[in-house]
Design a binder for these strands. Sequence first.
RNA 1: GGUCCCAUGGUGUAGGGGUUAUCACGCCUGCCUGUCACGCAGGAGAUCACCGGUUCAAAUCCGGUUGGGACCGCCA
Length: 591
Amino acid sequence: MVKRTNYAGLINEDYVGQEIDLAGWVQKRRDLGNLIFIDLRDREGILQLVFSQEFSETALALADTLRAEYVISVHGKVQARSESAINPKMKTGKVEVEVTAIKILNKAKTPPFYIEDNVSASEDLKLKYRYLDLRRPEMAAGIRTRAQIMKSVHHFLDREDFIEIETPDLTKSTPEGARDYLVPSRVYPGSFFALPQSPQLFKQLLMGAGFDRYYQLARCFRDEDLRGDRQPEFTQIDLETSFLDAEEIQALTEGLIAEVMHDEKGLDIPRPFPRMDWDEAMARYGSDKPDTRFGMELQDLSDFFKDSSFKVFQNAIANGGQVKAIVLSGAADKYSRKDIEGQQEHIKRFGAKGLAFVKVTEDDLTGPAAKFLKEQRTPLLEKLGAKAGDLLLFVADTKKVVADSLGYLRVHFGHKLGLIDESKFNFLWVLNWPLFEYDEGIQRWTAAHHPFTMPNEADLHYLDEGEDPHQAYAQSYDIVLNGYELGGGSIRIHTREIQEKMLRALGFTKEKAQAQFGFLLDALDYGFPPHGGLAIGLDRFAMLLSNRDNIRDVIAFPKNSKATEPMTNAPMPVAPTQLDELGIEVEKPLD
RNA sequence: GGUCCCAUGGUGUAGGGGUUAUCACGCCUGCCUGUCACGCAGGAGAUCACCGGUUCAAAUCCGGUUGGGACCGCCA
């Protein structure tokens, strides 16, 4: 086989006159009889090849037998196309290669879907033939964006004197957090390793070991149901530092992100990034990861409607809830009553009992709720900054239901109304999270971030016996990008005293705490430095920089939404002998 | 665990009780020397996901199963 001299996708006018050797896939054949055009595709792009008896009779004959996705190598001369033959839609459209020799390296069956961007094949089919899907330029681009990010991260953190350290994948199951993926131990039947949900405790222990600045592109595993931005295995840009406070860690993170944005997008993101307290984010956006590319903020009308004749509003307020609204500017005529009632169905998922709405006309309000609000039209519009032509949406309920519902509607209509500038990258720090959150399912308080998060200094006393720990806020911070939680971190607890208090507040007895986290508690006794860190979701970062809406698109071999892998058919039942060795008996054999 | 949606040639689809099962792309054959969504002529290709029910008659209606997608719960 002849050595390839160039990538097809990189050939341009500079190469005119040169003899080159290319290798790649047949994207398209256009057979005009004694003149055949082949679009040759390789990892860098597509280039037109010309076959004619003028250049080679043999090559022309072989070109006639080419089909889509055949793998070929060619030798030929780069020529400028005549003015009328230039294709402005192609990067290589000013040139073509006159082929004097061709070798068919392999044939191909007709692929089950077209190898081109914007294919409409089902997700399932594309995953089954993932190696074909990845041939599509937009898919390859996502994978390469991911690689670029990793490269920038290595460069930046290496320059900042971080030490890359690997932590175990076979580790210990922990009761807090997500469901573990378990790995049975052959040597100790009945005992299991767990795959790490994150390297959290190991990286803290590395601080205890004195490494001072650690990082890792860490694979993490969580056995929970999937979403567009969640896969059971994913990668974190994981870092931890000693002796830095939250602001210093944030500044460092901003440097890291700015470098990635510069390298990958050529953008200079202004620093410092905007910051917002968690309470404020929830109040203004109904979300702990607000998309700040557009306004339409939630406005609190609880005081305004305190004495309202509208019973729905009044009752919600009397029961300790809220009334909030969003203003859809100029949208009064864009949506029918039916459209809005459709949205009402959507927010029932969040527990909302209803969605009140009015359309603002020149001197009136219309819609089902109008009669209750008409009298207050002028002060209401003034309070909301609304005007004729606007559509007002109200939700009256508990604080959480109001935030979830209006938070969802804000994002939904923000997209629908085209308020979002898709070219923007709005980074935002969300600070001062609650230390705990109430888990309705198991009826107890759990760590909002994780159990090793340091409370705010002023809130430390809430962890004391007899106090209400649930009022405490944490020294934790999330980095948000365009409405996605890109990453998060915190200052960690570095004394045994506070860590024990924390575990007690979470319902651990002293014995259980020692059994589960004894290795950490003991380590804290041996001169543990103050420390903190953060982890960024590499998959989400790559997804957002590639303008995709599913992290599958930036993972070479992802799972489908049912947590299986259609190409290899994993997971699969295993041979009984394998189970015997592990001392495992399966209740209901699957075959 | 729950809710909603989808399943028809290789791919995307039309069809909502009786059809020769629609169309486009793709595929195959032939013709064609400037195409790039090539063109022209012809052709092949579908147990309408599976099982059961209703009916004289089911791709179509009903029930279930399987597979897939989105969301809630769950998950940082």
